[in-house]
Write a protein that binds this DNA or RNA. Sequence first.
RNA 1: GCGCCUGUAGCUCAGCUGGAUAGAGCAACGGACUUCUAAUCCGUAGGCCAGGGGUUCGAAUCCCUUCAGGCGCGCCA
Length: 555
Amino acid sequence: MRDKLEKIVLQAAKNAYAAGDFNSDAFGDVVIEEPKISSHGDFATNFALAGASIQKMPPRKIAEAIIRHLEDPGKIIRETQIAGPGFINFFISPEAWLPFLREVHEKEALYGAVNIGMGQKIQVEFVSANPTGPLHVGHGRGAVVGDTLAAILNFCGFIADREYYINDAGRQIRTLGSSVYFRCQELAGNKIDFPDDAYQGEYIYEIANDLMNEKKEALFSMDREKAIDLCARYAADKILINIRTDLENLGIGFNTWFSEQSLYDSGKVEESIRIAKEKNLAYASEGAVWFKSSLFGDEKDRVIVRGNGLTTYFASDIAYHMDKYGRGYDRVIDVWGADHHGYVARLTAAITAMGYKPEQFRVVLAHLVNLVREGIPVSMSTRAGQFVTLREVVDEVGADAARFIFLTRHHESPLDFDLVLAKQKTNDNPVYYVQYVYARISSIMKKAAAEYDIRIPDADKAPLDRLTEPEEILLMKHFARYPEVIAGAAKMMEPHRVAYYLMELAAAFHAYYNKHRVLSEDTEVSISRLYLVKAVRTVIGNGLTLLGVSTPEIM
RNA sequence: GCGCCUGUAGCUCAGCUGGAUAGAGCAACGGACUUCUAAUCCGUAGGCCAGGGGUUCGAAUCCCUUCAGGCGCGCCA
């Protein structure tokens, strides 16, 4: 609808110029907005205000000219008015909303799929937690944001892949290995001092125990270094399997699990360092090799090869991202925890330095999650190993509630996740509020078939002129907005917009449901209302599916 | 010290990337089930958009600044 008005206004502007009413044909962008107040119309444009300086005319004069030259062959505009300093307000005729209702039925599961990706390949990398311990709620948020983002992008004509980067090289894995090794020693009855910097968690015991059962002989017959190595790989594999299971329980799967170690094995880390040197982007100083990130917006240059000859995480990350583009991705999105934000400028600098455009790379930061129970913070001491894992949370509240709640906030805003509230089946809990719409309509549809012998007619046969109630028009307006919401969520990388939209559509439906009866003795009205309500169900189902939330027919 | 994020109703948060008189939910108060699921709805009340400057026709939104909270600033990952 917005698009239609945009074209109409632009055409009117051209007409006005052709008729000599305007001084310039540089019109700028036509912005159509939805006024907050209904007395200001269904839509409004600031065209006359914005054009005042261009046309060197008072806004109201411009607005008058626009209205005079308006062409509306589809008769979608019922009334226009000039208001305030020069807004043009449009009142849409009720029938003009009907095509959106038809479109929902025609496109069904594809309704709202705006093609903005045009087949571009895009990669969303998310979670990527080190395989050194169980996932916590913060990871869960990043996981859901990333997964939903990928789903939305796929829906919008991108070819989006999901990828998990496994940090299986470097010191943390080494620490994991020695942590397990020490616990094995303990289990074997050897007295040891468990180091402070080792992982303290209970899960280390469990892994050590399993390892002892399986490979005790081998472990103690090899030398210490090799043994630690074995422990590291064994533990990382175990933990990774658990991580994978946790994510599957949240409905999340990946196209690719990418190993950091593989970048070393294939020589890609070395290669990218070599390329950086060739491009004069790296230099040796103080015994180390530095990347000239400061030339590309970072605060300072960063070390890629340490004095001891080992590469830094930054080095492998550069190689990793080069590899991503090398695999044919036009755009790359990384979803990180907000505690890594200090790293954004650095990596962005490296990517631009290596010849890619800034718009090809985007970091989405998922902020902190505070776990609370009825408003009281749940202790999350990682140190003592006593933190609530993602698995426990999902087990307690369910995947649907967990996913939806993660999406009820802008991802850059901190989130209080209330375990009690997440389980409550009330209005406080938006998941059920939205799902309830789906269930209610499913129930109506069954009843319609069973007791009223009414089926959904074909789109062109539905007596849509019987849909005249304000609440019915409002639902159709929401349909018209859905594609715009989806497009906005995709462009802005803001999946929460879809969640909010669903809550709004749900509210509009519940209000309608309470005021009007769908099924009655008046068959014609019943049919048209059923047709409307089924469309609501389609759009709700559409949105919930994008968010990875189930669509129950009975609740 | 520097950088990033956050600050909107008592609480939890939206605000369509500059629009007109500021939006929900919860909590509070008052109503609606012999009718398609009350996991719902309707109404009332609640605000100096942290404070102060600026930019312009117009600012919660952009810029500067102060304050408060969070997080980052390694030859760690």
